[in-house]
Nucleic acid binder design. Sequence first.
DNA 1: ATTCCTGCAAAAGATTTGCACGTTT
DNA 2: AAACGTGCAAATCTTTTGCAGGAAT
Lengths: 144, 144
Amino acid sequence: MGEAKKRRDYEKELRDAGIRITRARKTILKILEEGEKHPDAMEIFRRASEIDATVSLSTVYRTMKILEDRGAIQRHVFEGGPSRFEPAGGTHHDHLIDTDTGEVVEFRSDKIEALQEEIARSLGYEIVSHRLELYVRKIGRRRG
Amino acid sequence: MGEAKKRRDYEKELRDAGIRITRARKTILKILEEGEKHPDAMEIFRRASEIDATVSLSTVYRTMKILEDRGAIQRHVFEGGPSRFEPAGGTHHDHLIDTDTGEVVEFRSDKIEALQEEIARSLGYEIVSHRLELYVRKIGRRRG
DNA sequence: ATTCCTGCAAAAGATTTGCACGTTT
DNA sequence: AAACGTGCAAATCTTTTGCAGGAAT
């Protein structure tokens, strides 16, 4: 199947869906396309504000919701923090979160995926979705 | 898993720790000991209110915090819902959540545990904690 | 008596929404 | 012009906290 959808073009995606591309949205989308992989709403808002001080936090949230509803981004709620957003569309993966820095690393294990399926099936269920998060710290780092 | 589920005695646990056993706490602890395994704060509050209408939601939360700090219960935040509390102290396990009913089933997979360790280590991390949740539906149940 | 708890109301943090106005198509 | 989108403030929802009175030890 066609893959190679590395570079995202949210703007086209929304335009094609008949959604208007406004100044605020343009700013937010650019941040998503160019910025870090797992920003939270406040982070997006801060960056957007630097480019266009009139953008509001509400609009950030509303834009995230539109993208999420279209499957263009995924929302993750890691322990103890606000929602963080990541571009969707790649292969499925799970997350490893550095508890010291908040950094997120993506990983994938077909073995784990298979085992999950097995477990669910053996209990009479089918998996709708799942989440696996490893909260970790760099080996050797001293305890805070 | 197989071993007899030792009945919890939160009251003794707290008393031994020098924490006062008040009327409100007695009520709440009884609910935890006798009720379902994964109630949320509001559910505990409702049940407590039936026994003693003066118990407040604040006290429910405060009591949960005390128990959590002592490792007597664990708090879980499943997708889209409020925190749910479960008696701690058994072996580690993960959760399977029925998305139709909210019911929680505990399971454990040593294979998955081992794979997680392997993955974290191969990336240069050690696991601090982790969470694996399977959001599922009964096989054969028709879609809503 | 002293220390700890409690209920209440208010605060907090994250996110959503009503509304009147401004912008995109 | 007609729809749609925006900022702002206010509302939600869940959880926490300040405070002054009450209860446990």
